[in-house]
Design a protein around this nucleic acid. Structure first.
Lengths: 221, 221
DNA sequence: ACCATAAATCTACGATGTAGATTTATGGTG
DNA sequence: CACCATAAATCTACATCGTAGATTTATGGT
């Protein structure tokens, strides 16, 4: 294809794991995760499909490598003189930004994080520190940490594939709700009838504030 | 294979959409989602692969059909004389039971629910009713509902693929944490050092209680 | 001069989803 | 009774996928 077989010349540019992962990530970002095949990746790299296997054992390793790359882009925010709530908010914002930057990889990302990954440990340490500082007991810290992470993952998922994420879905939801017999879903009718679309989409962080309010009841106790 | 081609005789048993979906679900439950291919499904049904296409347009329809079946198994609990917290707890328990009954389908399930599905609307109505009854304002109802669902989805995901779900993962986590330099993750060391495995796994619902505590601050306000 | 070795290519295999043609008998119609 | 559109399945075939195995080519070390 691009290069001929044979050992590369001294100044010759060789394929690298980093280059492969970066290109794969680019394909996933621009064309979706189904568009990523070894052969498709190879043609984009200008290389024979099997050339990839010199640098990665199989496709699973390619996927995990992408997860690794994306997580390595993640930096836990460093904040001074901010209370625990501010720290949790900052973390949530960083995490949201991360998954938003690679929407097509989210599902695979969330379902394939290794608990041993450095980024995961860093996250745990960051949240533990903030929550200990808030005055929670050990078991409370674990519970709160798990809730925050579960919520963020669930939110990310909903945003990438659920009703959220696409603005027109709201419209569909409203028209559907209104097309149904009025007595069928009275509570939803009342609730959503009192709100407009702009209000609903205005703030991503309302749910997080609810979590923070819950945690705070533990702080006072 | 089992039957010969040709129009079926009067009393002949024919393949049905329901039968196909049930067998597919059984394969996924017992052998994992990767084990489900059209050909594999056909041999289990004792039928030619292409016979399936008389009843379902393609594999995506098969998958969506399975989601539909699983969700149709879901019944929102009917409770009398229970406060809003009890209703939310009952719902969470039902939802957890649902995803737990088909662990291998969870990821696809969560990422392919249609907002228009009857079960989804029923869930929305159920939670809206409980939360309105609790005394929340419309926007608060929406926020609380979204949080509960996002959390439950995130939890289900973590249970099916994350550190949770497999008991030995805890052990790995502990040994990993202890193998690292002590000053590296001081907060996690302190937090997890104060707890044993049994305490951590004791209760699934601690995180939900945290959410309920948060919502309650809105009720009082 | 020789040769193990690195980085790629070429060839080939089995599995997958599915389009298209074919088989077989049915129940309705002249 | 003869005929035929139609239903439910099968058979055949193709493009695509991941990847095992053999091959090509030049390198740097001995």
């Amino acid at each position: 294809m691009a290069r001929r077989p044979g050992r590369p010349k001294s100044g010759d540019e060789v394929l690298s794991r980093e280059q492969i992962l970066a290109t794969a990530l680019q394909i996933v970002d621009t064309e979706g995760i189904d568009a990523l095949s070894m052969r498709r990746l190879a043609t984009t790299l200008g290389v024979d499909p099997m050339a990839i296997y010199r640098h990665l054992p199989d496709k699973a390793a390619l996927m995990d490598g992408m997860v690794e790359v994306v997580f390595s882009e993640f930096r836990v925010p460093r904040l001074e003189g901010v209370d625990w709530k501010g720290q949790v908010r900052a973390f949530a914002a960083s995490y949201r930004a991360l998954v938003k930057s690679h929407p097509n990889l989210i599902v695979y990302l969330i379902t394939h994080v290794e608990a041993s990954a450095p980024a995961v440990l860093a996250v745990g340490e960051y949240l533990s520190t903030a929550l200990v500082q808030a005055g929670l007991a050990p078991l409370q810290v674990v519970t709160a940490t798990n809730l925050i992470i579960d919520y963020l993952n669930g939110f990310a998922l909903g945003e990438s594939s659920g009703m959220l994420g696409k603005p027109e879905a709201y419209q569909n939801f409203y028209t559907l709700l209104n097309s149904l017999p009025a007595e069928r879903y009275p509570s939803m009718r009342a609730v959503y009838g009192a709100l407009n679309e702009a209000t609903l989409q205005a703030d991503d962080a309302r749910e997080l504030e609810l979590i923070l309010a819950g945690i705070e009841t533990w702080v006072c106790a």
